[in-house]
């Protein structure tokens, strides 16, 4: 495992910890999209079907369990926790995620490496992860002013995707293997979504700050 992959995993982990910290400390999930969180839970559950069949390393297995458990915990808090659920911006979180799930599943049925249960769901999880952030980005844009923690959550997720791309480039030149094309193409699309969002979101915030200062 190279340093870029490890740094990518750590920024991914930090983004989830930021979210858990925000929910725990403020007892609020304002500005967080439940739909994005449910999509991530679905992503981890369908991708890590190999948890008990294919062992890679202790690191991988532990991280898989951490990702599944933390994403389920966040969804549980936002749906069931008596205090947290009250702060959920239901009216702003309107992205039609069910169509995205359906589209990704159809795509996985068509584009996969082998037509087996695990491989189809693995491809589905890769496609779904690429677009899972969309409800969150829509919510951020609609709600306007966002607290720092929510902004940092998206920032760290974006960093994770960027580092994974550097990891693939590094692996391509240093190993006899190259990363799977389904993951690479989906990863590039996903990173482009973040880049586009950061470009317009932070640009508009910098403009706003400048106007405020004037």
């Amino acid at each position: 495992m190279n340093i870029f992959r490890f740094a990518g995993d750590m920024t991914h982990l930090i983004s989830i910890l930021i979210l858990l910290l925000k929910i725990y400390a403020t007892k609020s999930c304002a500005g967080i999209s439940l739909k994005t969180q449910e999509l991530y839970a679905l992503v981890f559950l369908t991708r890590y079907l190999d948890l008990f069949t294919d062992y890679v390393s202790l690191y991988n297995s532990v991280m898989k369990i951490v990702f599944i458990a933390s994403s389920l915990a966040i969804v549980w808090c936002m749906r069931r926790h008596p205090l947290v659920r009250r702060s959920y911006d239901k009216d702003l979180d309107t992205f039609r995620h069910q169509y995205v799930v359906l589209a990704c599943f159809v795509l996985a049925l068509v584009l996969h490496e082998r037509f087996t249960f695990q491989e189809v769901f693995w491809a589905f999880s890769i496609y779904l992860e690429a677009v899972a952030i969309l409800p969150q980005l829509v919510l951020l844009q609609r709600s306007g002013n966002v607290d720092n923690l929510t902004g940092q959550y998206v920032l760290f997720l974006g960093a994770y995707r960027g580092l994974y791309i550097i990891n693939w480039i590094y692996r391509y030149f240093t190993e006899d293997h190259f990363a799977r094309w389904i993951a690479c193409v989906s990863g590039l699309i996903q990173t482009a979504l973040y880049a586009d969002f950061f470009y317009y979101y932070y640009l508009s915030r910098i403009k706003q700050d400048t106007i405020m200062r004037l």
């Binding site: 890679v56 391509y172 190259f178």
Partner: peptide, 10 residues
């Protein structure tokens, strides 16, 4: 020639 990796990423 290069071969695809096993699924060793998260």
């Amino acid at each position: 020639h290069k071969e695809e990796t096993t699924k060793d990423e998260l």
